[in-house]
Amino acid sequence: MLLDPWTLWLVVLIVGLLLAGSMLFVWFLTPEESALGYWSAFTGLLVAGVSAGMARGLIPDFASIELGNAAILLAYGFIWSGLRRFDRRRPRLFYAVLIALAWIALCQLPPFRESVGSRVILISALIGLLATLGLVQTWRGWTTPSRPRLAVFVVLLLVLVLNLARIPLMPTQVRQNQLITFTEPHNAVVGLVAIGVAIFLNYALVLMVRERAELLHRSAARRDELTGLLNRRGFSELALANCETAGPVALIILDIDHFKQVNDRFGHATGDRVLEAFAHVLRINLRQADIVGRIGGDEFAALLPGASEAAAGQAAERIREAFQAGVGQMRPDGARVECSSSIGVACGDFPDAPSDGAARLEALLAWADRALYEAKSAGRNRVVVTQAS
């Protein structure tokens, strides 16, 4: 039994309106994620464009052909711009507006306007272009494993394929220079596909937002609020994962000398500035792959995967010198802050992956802590390197 196309397309419109409303509701609950506003506009414009197409013959052709298809083009422009906004890039909605205006301008040319087949080919190609831009942005922003982003990519790829497929299948939608997409029962499957695509795309986009919110929440739980470095929990989790692989590794424990005296003399605000300065020194003197954290009040730690004893010792010495020079520039109340650091370094070369990475990390911490104690006992403001065994 063939489905009634008008009934089915009416269902498509109702579902589209519900999706637009639900996306607006999610945006209301998550106002900091402005991409949701772009994606709400996508669904609303798509519904408006399809509604104009269904009303062809009941409303002026300018509203049905020019404005209706321009709304659909803008809708896919909002998808692309929303993806750019989500990835913290500047939206490019201006280009989608230009494409929509170019469509309206072309429709004023009698040869093009009077050829339904030409209009179907061009609108399909333009939607394909905007879908491709959305695919490119989805791919560029794919920096970490993400199933929702994969789903968005697949759905946009499906949109691209379906729109390009309209070009060779044009004879099934145009008869005697008349569009029959909304009137012929055999085209009802187009409505079914439209419902499925709209539902899956909106659901995947919302899941992308939820996934990032969860990642940010987990990241915040592992970060020290003052310095922005990993806290003890975050450092332990990442360091443990690196200690479960074979190869050389170095662990550095760093302590600010006489930090309590800084707080007592200059106040806790200056003490916080000293901690922030030390964290900055660690960032610029260690590699991006190194794991750095604040594991206590004035105690820091860094795990250097693949670092030799010489490289770890040189990095520790750079940190000691840079911190002493930098903190000496601080002059609260006109007085110079005298501050240094003691550093203990433990290095190990592990040719085999351990059966217990926690035991390796615990051993490195113990040896690095012992080296730090030696540095303090020898007068502070120095680096002591030891070989873990």
Rank of each mutant, 00 (worst) to 15 (best):
R90S: 07
R113V: 02
S64F: 05
L106T: 00
A125D: 15
N163T: 11
A105L: 01
R89S: 14
I121Y: 13
R147V: 14
R84S: 11
L101M: 04
P168K: 03
A188D: 01
G82D: 03
I195F: 08
A131V: 05
G141A: 13
F112R: 03
L192I: 15
T172C: 14
L135V: 12
V159D: 06
G191I: 01
I127P: 07
L160V: 01
T183E: 09
G117Y: 07
L164G: 04
T172G: 13
W139R: 15
L98V: 08
G82F: 08
G134V: 03
V154W: 11
P145V: 01
R89N: 07
N177H: 02
A100G: 00
L126H: 07
V97G: 01
L73N: 01
T181I: 15
L98M: 13
Y76P: 00
A198E: 06
L98S: 09
E114I: 09
E66L: 05
R88G: 09
V97T: 05
V197G: 05
L160K: 05
G117V: 05
H186D: 06
E114G: 02
L101V: 08
V116L: 02
P148W: 14
R90K: 15
T132A: 13
A198M: 14
V97M: 05
L164M: 07
A71D: 00
V197K: 02
L192R: 09
R149W: 11
L133I: 04
I180G: 08
G77P: 10
D87S: 15
I195D: 04
A71H: 03
F78C: 12
R147K: 09
I123S: 10
G134F: 00
A71T: 02
S81K: 08
I123T: 11
N187I: 04
F182Q: 08
P91E: 03
A131M: 11
I123D: 11
S81A: 08
Y76Q: 06
A63P: 06
V120C: 07
P168G: 02
Q178L: 12
P145T: 05
L130V: 07
I180S: 06
R89L: 10
T144W: 13
W103R: 01
N177F: 01
V152L: 08
F112E: 03
G68H: 05
F78I: 04
L192P: 13
F200I: 10
F153L: 08
Q178A: 10
R149V: 04
Y76H: 07
L83I: 14
Y76L: 12
Q178N: 08
L83V: 13
